[in-house]
Design a protein around this nucleic acid. Structure first.
Lengths: 360, 360
DNA sequence: CTGAAAGCGCTTACAG
DNA sequence: CTGAAAGCGCTTACAG
C-alpha cells in the first residue's frame, strides 16, 4: 500500500502539498502539481478512506422524512429498517442519520415534521414526497438552502435535478398484467380495485393501472377489465358489501388486481368459494400480504424491495457527500415477482439485519 | 460521541486498560474491569471501527477459488464482479482479496489453482467446490490449517461447520415447474433437457429437476414429462439433430425446461416455427439468455443473483474476520423470476458497479 | 506557494 | 496488573 508519505518523499515535497494536489485545494505551483500528479499516477495511489474519515471528522447530518407505520399498515416499516441498517454502516465515516416521521394521511403532520427537520440544517435530505402541494413548498426551501434531496419510493414529476429511488411503477403494473393473463383461463374478466381515498401516494397507483391496462392492449386480447373504486380498504363492512355487489353484477370476473399494498384487505372479506375461484394479484410483501400468498389466496405479489430502497438511499447520499459521486436522476430497483415458494428467500439482506437486531 | 479517552478519565485508568477490557485481553483486575464495564454500559460506548481499523492494520488475506469465464459461457462473470465490488468496499478495513481461477471442466486446474492459493496462507477462503473428490481433499487441508471457508453457488453436502451462500436449488426448480404449468395450455407435454457431460456442478441441476418434477406431483396434474439428455450444449450440430429428433418423436411437447444456464444454446438451434410454438424456461441471466428473454424466445428465467452471491460472500467473511460475527450454515439468496419486462431492473447493484468501472 | 506539527480514536509494544 | 508513548494514514490550521 502506497501512502501520501511515500508520494511526498519521492516528490521531495511535504505531505501537506500532496494532500493539496489530491483534493485540488489549490495553492500549489503548476510545476510541483504536475510532478506530484505524475507520481500519483505511476504508483497508482488511492486515498485510504479510513484514515481520511478519521482525520476529517466528517460530521454530516442526513435527515429522513418518512411516514410512520402501524400494525395494519406496515408498508413503511421495511424502508425504515433499510435506512437504519445503512445508517449503521456509514456511522463509521461520520454520517449521522436523523428521522422525522409523519402521518401519511395528514398533510399537516408532514409539514410539521419538515419544520423540525429543517431546523437541524441537514447536509442532505431523504424524503417520501407524499403530498404534492406541500412537497413543492419543501423542495423550494431545500433548494434555497442548497440542500440535496432524494425522493424515496414516491416520485415527483417535473423537478429537474431531483433524484428518485424506487420502482418503475408503470412497468410493474405491466408485469402484473402479464401475470394476470397467464393466470386467467381464457374468456374470463378481470377487475382492478382501488380505494378512492387519496393518500397523495396514488401517482404510483395510477401508473401501475396504466401499465396493467397497456399490457392487455399490447397483446390485443379481448379481456374485459372492470374497475371498482371502494371507499377505503380500512372499513371492512363497506368494503365487503361493495365488493360482493360488484362480483354479483359481473359474474364473469375471475381475476382481481389490487394495485396498492392492500390486497390482503380484499382477501379478508371474500367467501371461501370466492377465495377458491378468484385469482388475486397485489403489491408489496407486507406481513399480511405474505400470509395470503402462503395460504394460496393471493397468487402473485409484485414487490419493490422496500428494504433495499431505504438502504440504497442512504448509501447514495453517503457516496455523494463523502466521495462527491454524482447522483443519477432515477435509480430503479428490481420488480420482484413473489410467489408462495420464493417469498421467504426474497430479502436476504433484510433478514440478516433483523436477526442482528434481535441479538443486540 | 464518547471515546476511550472519556471512559478512561472517568474510571481513573489509562486508555490502554480500557482497551484491554473492551477486547477481553485479560491482565486486568476484576475490580477495575467491573468499574470500567459499568461506565462503558452507562455511557453506551461503542468502538469507533474506523479508528480501530486504522490502528490495527488488519492485514487479512482472503483467497477466492472460482472458475474462469468465457464469452460463450459467461456465468461466472457476475459472481466475480460481485466479489470485486465487495473487495473494494473492504479494502479500507485492511482486507485483501486474491483470486485463483480454474477451468471448470478440468479438475487438474482446480487442484493446481488451490496449490497456489494455499501457499498464500489466507485467513479465509471463498470457493466454488466444483469437483467433489478434489473438494474433499481441499477441505481437509483447510481444516488442518484452521482456515475458514465458504462455498459459493455450489453446495457440498455432509460437511458440518461449512457455510453455503447461493440458491435453494430444489425450490428454484419447483418454481420453474409452477411457471411452466402456468405457461402451458392444458394437455401439452413438457421436456426437461440437460447435458450428459458433467461439470461437477450438476448437483444443483439434479436438485432443480427434482423440484420441477415434484411440483407436478404436488398438483396432481397428468402432464407428461419427457427427459432428453444431449451430449453437450456446446456442439451445435449434434444438439440440433438430437433435439429435432426428439421433438419429432414427441410432437405433444410444448414446453422445454433447461435446468442449467444454457437455454440460449437450445434457442439457437430451434426453427422459427418452434420458437413460436414452444414455451422455454431456463436459468440465469447470462447475456445470451437475456437476449432470448427480450426477443420472446424464452418466457422466464430463474435467476440466482450471481452478483450478490459474490458480494455477500466477501461481506460475510469480512464480518467474520473483523467483527467475529458467527457464520450461518446456509445463506439462501433470492430466487428471482425474470421476464422480458423486469430483467433490466433486476440487478441495480451490479449495474451501478459496472458503470463505476467504466469511469475509472 | 510550501512545510512542520498536532490531531482524529484506537492499538501496540514496552517498561515497571 | 497498569500506564505512557508511539503509531496507523490523512487532514488541518498555522507560520513563513
Amino acid at each position: 500500500m502506497v501512502r501520501i508519505k511515500d508520494i511526498a518523499k519521492e516528490a521531495n515535497v511535504s505531505e501537506g502539498t500532496v494532500d493539496r494536489v489530491l483534493h485540488g485545494r489549490g495553492g500549489v505551483s503548476k510545476k510541483t502539481a504536475d510532478k506530484i500528479n505524475k507520481i500519483l499516477e505511476r504508483r497508482n495511489f488511492s486515498i485510504n478512506p479510513v484514515a481520511s474519515a478519521l482525520a476529517t471528522k466528517n460530521n454530516h447530518t442526513i435527515a429522513v422524512l418518512i411516514p410512520e407505520y402501524s400494525e395494519t399498515d406496515s408498508f413503511w416499516k421495511l424502508p425504515y429498517l433499510g435506512l437504519l441498517k445503512a445508517s449503521e454502516d456509514v456511522k463509521n465515516i461520520g454520517l449521522n442519520v436523523n428521522y422525522f416521521k409523519f402521518d401519511q394521511y395528514n398533510s399537516n403532520s408532514y409539514m410539521e415534521a419538515f419544520t423540525n427537520l429543517i431546523k437541524m440544517k441537514p447536509s442532505a435530505v431523504i424524503l417520501v414526497p407524499m403530498f404534492l402541494k406541500e412537497t413543492r413548498v419543501i423542495i423550494n426551501e431545500l433548494k434555497k438552502a442548497g440542500t440535496k434531496y432524494i425522493f424515496l419510493n414516491v416520485d415527483v414529476e417535473g423537478e429537474d435535478g431531483s433524484v428518485y429511488i424506487g420502482q418503475d411503477s408503470y412497468m410493474s403494473g405491466y408485469i402484473a398484467g402479464k401475470l394476470m393473463k397467464l393466470s386467467l383461463t381464457d374468456g374470463y374478466d378481470c377487475c382492478i380495485m382501488q380505494a378512492s381515498t387519496s393518500t397523495g401516494d396514488n401517482q404510483a397507483i395510477v401508473k401501475r393501472i396504466k401499465g396493467f391496462k397497456d399490457y392487455y392492449t399490447a397483446i390485443k386480447e379481448e379481456i374485459k377489465l372492470h374497475e371498482l373504486k371502494v371507499e377505503s380498504f380500512g372499513d371492512e363492512v363497506k368494503l365487503a358489501s361493495s365488493v360482493t355487489l360488484f362480483l354479483e353484477k359481473f359474474p364473469n370476473i375471475k381475476g382481481i388486481f389490487v394495485p396498492s399494498s392492500r390486497v390482503s384487505a380484499v382477501v379478508k372479506i371474500l367467501s371461501e368459494e370466492q377465495k377458491e375461484s378468484l385469482q388475486l394479484i397485489g403489491f408489496d410483501n407486507t406481513p399480511q400480504n405474505v400470509v395470503c400468498l402462503k395460504n394460496d389466496t393471493v397468487l402473485f405479489l409484485i414487490s419493490q424491495k422496500p428494504f433495499d430502497q431505504g438502504y440504497e438511499a442512504v448509501r447514495l447520499i453517503s457516496d455523494y457527500l463523502i466521495k462527491s459521486k454524482a447522483l443519477k436522476r432515477k435509480l430503479y430497483l428490481p420488480i420482484d415477482i413473489l410467489t408462495k415458494e420464493n417469498v421467504d428467500y426474497n430479502d436476504a439482506n433484510q433478514l440478516m439485519f433483523e436477526s442482528d437486531l434481535k441479538y443486540q
